[in-house]
């Protein structure tokens, strides 16, 4: 993903096409260092200047005691994984539902992962339901939920 990231082990059962994906396949996850610079850059890019993310003095007085990454930034990492996994279909028809269960603090390296949990038929074609998530360095789940994508002609390699 970036100079701060490292790939996870290759997904199991790499599919060759729509017919190749199967339940249990891992999505192309990755690990990534969330720096305060990245949080600040995201604030400018998404126009989200909530001080809990960028103002150390303000954040010190909150329940977290320090600045936290935007939930939408951590979710963006998950959607990057989905876009890598389903490059033809994620942007048109992709769907997700997640909960933000714990904060991510700048300085932490997070791990983004996912797995196909079911494949069902729909009017548009086969749909992969995936478990997706993002974990903090200690393994605590910060983002967890499901995502759905049509199986297009290409999936990840």
């Amino acid at each position: 993903m970036s100079a701060h990231s490292s790939p996870l082990p290759a997904p199991r059962g790499i599919p060759s096409g729509a017919g190749g994906s199967k339940v249990g396949d891992s999505l192309p996850g990755f690990a990534l260092l969330v720096t305060q610079d990245r949080v600040n850059d995201y604030a400018r890019a998404a126009m989200d200047f909530n001080p809990i993310h960028i103002d150390a003095e303000f954040a010190a007085k909150t329940q977290f005691g320090r600045r936290i990454a935007h939930g939408m930034l951590t979710l963006a990492f998950v959607t990057e994984m989905m876009a890598l996994a389903f490059p033809d279909t994620w942007h048109a028809g992709g769907r997700l539902k997640v909960r933000f269960k714990a904060p991510v603090f700048p300085g932490e390296t997070v791990t983004i992962s996912g797995e196909i949990t079911s494949i069902t038929d729909s009017a548009e074609g086969p749909v992969a339901e995936c478990r997706v998530g993002l974990k903090r360095p200690d393994g605590e789940e910060a983002v967890t939920g499901q995502a759905w994508a049509l199986l297009g002609p290409r999936q990840w390699r």
């Binding site: 993903m1 970036s2 100079a3 701060h4 990231s5 790939p7 990755f30 990534l32 990245r38 850059d41 995201y42 400018r44 890019a45 998404a46 126009m47 989200d48 939408m72 930034l73 979710l75 963006a76 990492f77 959607t79 990057e80 876009a83 890598l84 490059p87 994620w90 942007h91 992709g94």
Partner: peptide, 28 residues
Amino acid sequence: YSAAVGGDGSPDYGGMMPPMAVVAAGLS
């Protein structure tokens, strides 16, 4: 936006927006 959420290995969106960018900007 792409630089903030990804990096060298990010998906190539061509002339399209990373899909979550539009949603994030609206929600902010």
